[in-house]
Design a protein around this nucleic acid. Structure first.
Lengths: 388, 388
DNA sequence: AATCAATACTTGAAGAAGTTAAATATTCGC
DNA sequence: GCGAATATTTAACTTCTTCAAGTATTGATT
């Protein structure tokens, strides 16, 4: 789990992992609070925390304010020393690679991007390697503290062995990306599906912190969903999970590339929105940005396209809420640059279709900041350090 | 976990729970195989298994046949002594209580039922108590070995504390059923939602054995779904999970009592089928059995009602497969007495709507034998002994 | 100021649960 | 009967945790 200064791995006791994870995701906590939270004795926390402090992963904060009336000794909360270690995170898309350097708390310290014009494995690896160099150059801290790289891309991925089973947009099959990238960069590499990475990141460092179950929906060209249930990411048995984009919401709707009809994606995917907006305006070369502009400008026909799309997304989200009952749901993605056009329609549709108390599940709808995907890749790398 | 002869609880080590659970759900296994399966040393298995043997929960089977060519000492597989302990299981419906006595392997040894005409808590408890007496009378074994009772009923239930938060058909709110039934019967009581109970039972003793993730769909008056993901039952944060019955499958479909339109239940629920069959035949007093008979007899209009219902169910199941990617799915329920009318339509619809490889998920469609719900309640009670 | 109650943390002995390595048991093929 | 192969047991040891008793630090009370 936690390597010593020089790769001599120090395998911490179970309590150490639990303690570090809790402090990392939930912020500074006293040893006594940790013991209560984790069902351990405070002695166990003291002992398990010591090597983490010695190795520089945790440190003690100054005593905090008192609690009750005749309060006793003040707590010295444990906090993560975020700059103990840094992580590269790279998101691979069809036409570029985007990267960041993050600290242990997933704060971004540098970022960079490079165009990609060849989906060949070797060409992609070269660009990833160059991007890593760019990131090292842009990183103001100690380069020796960067020893891990997380990669995120869409497709069917086996995180355990770093294998890309199938990536439609790169036309890859069974590429051992983890091993190859490790050889190229000399770093310890983790590979994860992009939506799962974003979900894991949000679960540890974002809106999903503390939620036993949690869903993240991404809206863009495709519409995807990552799920955390009982505290664990859902993986799906046949390489399929969170395929919210291909739930049928309108049996009489448009044909979808998946072979079905009226899927969420065939109504609310970026391509579907553009196609429909072109139809309505009679302008065969309309772009998504122009469609958004028209809708914001009050063009009723185009507005209706976004309204319907929001409705379809809300319907898909309601299906998630009805089936797995997450504690919280985040809706995000590039598609939500047009956030204002969607928000209320997603909510209205969700509330209409959520069953009973599921409608109380809070929805966080917000656009996805630049480089967030890359940060998610770094977050997965952080997880791989803590929970191997 | 495992009580000694006289309530003096013996809290076994983690390995003991894992060993017992594995042997119980997967049948006789040698110690070496258990060690491999659970990632333990064989020495640990030997040690942890001994007290389980001493207490009569496990026993050694005679050595089995050899394996390879110059094979060594034959294994003495460990098996569960099913008659070490017995369990009552009772399903509470709106108009009757159905009960069984099961052994540790969830085999039924006796069964009984009583009508229920008053949904009052006290009246129900009285009937449950009488049913328990009936079951004790019908049970041929040693009554002293029956010390636990599982209750299953539909509604929002907190299994941990045996609380019925809300039961629509009994009009109960916040009834501490576990405590009350324990007082009445003198048994250790577990309370669980009926669909979750059935799912747990199927996961431990039925088609779901060995599946990391698993879904059970019940078809009847209501249409429900229980989920096991990453080996654990999904509970849902707002008392909602597995509400497959209220997924929208046809936005232009009939109104549903939940307030939505075109829900699976509003098309494939028993009431919906009867209503539609009445429409089609012009016979306002047609019963479900008559509708089934007409369809089997070849009445095209009524057949179409079942076809559409099967399609809606298949659509709901596909949503489950697309979102959580279970390894296996069982479709069951009273509604499937008309199993032959549904089967192919459910499958066809599922395969059409399942995304990609999710369509490979095997579907087990089969009617629910009598008293299966009660057996599920007993199974939950068994679980509560093994994994407290 | 001294004392007390409350709370947080630490320490050392003891215990539980597991591992490794070596011994024992049982079989098959020769 | 012997040796290779496999299963199980045993004993010594390691690791992790708890328990019980102490130390540390504060606010309130005398």
């Amino acid at each position: 789990m936690f390597p010593g200064i020089d790769a001599g791995a120090f395998a911490g006791p179970p309590a150490a992992t639990a303690i570090f994870t809790t402090v990392l995701t939930e912020g500074p906590v006293s040893r006594v609070a940790l013991a209560r939270r984790l069902g351990l004795s405070s002695a166990a926390v003291t002992k398990a925390a010591r090597p983490l402090i010695d190795l520089g992963y945790l440190h003690e904060l100054a005593a905090t304010e008192r609690s009750g009336p005749g309060a006793g000794r003040p707590a010295s909360p444990l906090a993560v020393r975020a700059e103990r270690e840094f992580f590269l995170g790279v998101k691979i898309t069809a036409d570029e690679v985007i990267g960041v350097v993050c600290d242990l708390r997933a704060q971004v310290h540098a970022s960079a991007r490079r165009p990609l014009d060849d989906p060949d494995v070797d060409a992609v690896l070269t660009e990833v390697d160059r991007l890593a160099d760019d990131l090292f150059d842009a990183f103001p801290g100690d380069r020796a503290r960067v020893r891990r790289l997380g990669l995120a891309l869409s497709g069917d991925i086996d995180r355990g062995i770093g294998l890309v089973r199938y990536s439609p947009f790169l036309h890859w099959r069974d590429v051992p990306l983890g091993r190859l990238a490790a050889q190229r960069t000399g770093l310890t590499v983790t590979v994860e599906n992009d939506v799962k990475a974003l979900t894991a990141a949000e679960h540890w460092f974002g809106e999903g912190v503390g939620a036993e179950s949690f869903a993240l929906v991404t809206v863009g060209t495709g519409i995807g969903c990552g799920l955390v249930v009982n505290g664990r990411l859902v993986s799906g048995s046949y390489g399929v999970a969170g395929e919210i984009g291909h739930l049928t919401v309108d049996a009489t709707g448009p044909d979808c590339h998946c072979g079905g009809r009226g899927c969420v994606e065939s109504i609310a995917g970026t391509d579907a929105i553009v196609a429909r907006a072109r139809d309505r305006t009679g302008r065969p070369d309309l772009t998504i940005d122009e469609a958004v502009a028209l809708a914001r400008g009050g063009h009723e026909q185009v507005r209706a396209v976004f309204t319907r799309a929001g409705g379809a997304i809300g319907c898909g989200i309601a299906a998630v809420a009805n089936l797995v009952g997450p504690t919280r749901i985040v809706v995000s993605g590039e598609g939500l640059a047009a956030y204002d056009l969607f928000d209320s329609h997603i909510r209205a549709s969700f509330e209409r279709q959520a069953f009973g108390a599921a409608a109380r599940c809070p929805l966080f709808i917000r656009p996805l900041p630049f480089e967030e995907w890359a940060r998610a890749a770094a977050a997965v790398s952080i997880q791989s350090l803590v929970v191997p």
